[in-house]
Amino acid sequence: MKKLVIGAALGTMLMAGTAFAGPYGTAGCGLGSIVFGSSPGFVQILAATTNGIFGNQTFGITSGTSNCSNTGGGTQSAQAFIETNREALAKDISRGNGETIKNLATLSGCQDPTAVGATLQRNFKTIFPSSDASNTQVSGAVINVLKSDKTLACERLI
């Protein structure tokens, strides 16, 4: 019994690698919708005390690659990448450089990540018109900007 009591205290701390089998949100592949499911308040406490919090079948080994877990390149995977990395990417776009821009350029098949950074920075206000812009609006806008600047030659975006 003692082992169990010790463990109970430890257990609440040692949540190394737990996942909440929550529903997948409807707002695209936003990090929040996947981390917290559709009921942020409810799951929040749990998420705060757990560790690996991505529990849904989006990531099952044998369930195949889903829209939100595709990193193979092309429009769909670029979209998922933009939505999940929104906060980090927004910063990088305002700075015209950064890891998320370089990886996005790779996914989109663009030749020169430096040029991609400059173009996105110039178009910051188009991509992020206000703090209310939804994740799907943002991903649509980024892809539009990349596609319409032909000099970038982002050949994997169709």
């Binding site: 080994i61 877990s69 990395n85």
Partner: peptide, 14 residues
């Protein structure tokens, strides 16, 4: 407990 395949960027952001 199960194994999952998660894009690394999820882990970095998390």
């Amino acid at each position: 407990g199960t194994f999952r395949k998660v894009p690394f960027y999820f882990k970095v952001r998390e």
